[in-house]
C-alpha cells in the first residue's frame, strides 16, 4: 500500500531568488521529499520551516520616566511562530521604569517560550 503523501509549500528567504519550496510528507509528518530549492541552505530551510518554524520578535514596551514613551525590545531567542501574537498580546500592557540599558532583561521568559525580552535601546531618565 502506498502511504498518502501531502505537500506543503514555502517561499525560500535565503536570497532574492525566492525559490518555491515543496515539502512532501508521509504518515506522522515524516518528510519524504523536498523540492524546488536551488541550494543546500534552501533545502535546510524548508525542513526547519516544516518541522519547527520559529521567529524573533521585536516590539515596544511602555517606559515610565524616560525621554520617550516607548522602549524598543526583542526576544533573546526565536520563539515558535504560532505563539508570536500571543506573546505580543501578553506584553501589551507592560510598562517598565527608566533608566534602561541595552541588553537589559525587561521580562523573564514570558509564556514560558524559552526567550527573555531584552531592551534594544539605551534610555535615560527624561
Amino acid at each position: 500500500m502506498t502511504p498518502s503523501i501531502s505537500t506543503a509549500n514555502y517561499l525560500c528567504i535565503g536570497c532574492p531568488l525566492g525559490c518555491r519550496l515543496e515539502v512532501d510528507t508521509a504518515e506522522e509528518d515524516r518528510i519524504v521529499e523536498i523540492r524546488g530549492f536551488s541550494c543546500k541552505r534552501g533545502k535546510e530551510y524548508a525542513a526547519q520551516e516544516h518541522i519547527d518554524p520559529r521567529r524573533n520578535v521585536a516590539l515596544t514596551v511602555g517606559l515610565r520616566g524616560g525621554a520617550l514613551p516607548r522602549l524598543p525590545v526583542k526576544t533573546s531567542a526565536a520563539v515558535p511562530k504560532a505563539r508570536v501574537l500571543a506573546l505580543c498580546a501578553a506584553l501589551r500592557d507592560l510598562v517598565i521604569d527608566a533608566p534602561v540599558r541595552v541588553g537589559q532583561v525587561v521580562a523573564v521568559n514570558p509564556l514560558g517560550l524559552g526567550a527573555d525580552i531584552v531592551a534594544t535601546r539605551e534610555m535615560g531618565v527624561g
Binding site: L11, I13, C15, P16, G18, R55, L85
Partner: peptide, 13 residues
Amino acid sequence: GLNRNIVQCLRDF
C-alpha cells in the same frame, strides 16, 4: 521587498 519580509511579515499572518 526582500523575500524574508514577504514570508515573515505577510505570509506568517
